[in-house]
């Protein structure tokens, strides 16, 4: 049971990584560089969109790039 849960958790790791790391990293890079996101989006919203979509695509395609 625990093994199955952990396997599923690690299969979805790119999503967790996107959410947990890429999202805040993107937001903080945008803030540091002074880049303003379009359409009134906040840096964190851009980070979350990028992190979750990149992570999700990675799970589907099996590759980060």
């Amino acid at each position: 049971m625990l093994k199955a849960v952990l396997t599923r958790f690690f299969q979805l790791m790119p999503v967790w990584f996107g959410l947990g790391f890429i999202a805040p990293l993107t937001a903080q890079i945008l803030q540091h560089t002074g880049l303003v996101p379009p359409m009134g989006l906040s840096p964190l919203m851009v980070g979350l969109a990028l992190g979750v979509s990149w992570g999700g695509l990675t799970v589907v395609r099996g590759r980060w790039i």
Binding site: G20, F21, P24, A27, I29
Partner: peptide
């Protein structure tokens, strides 16, 4: 990594 990043230190963690 995640805790550092969500506490404003993502660039340092990276």
């Amino acid at each position: 990594l995640f805790i550092s990043a969500w506490n404003g230190h993502a660039i340092e963690a990276a």
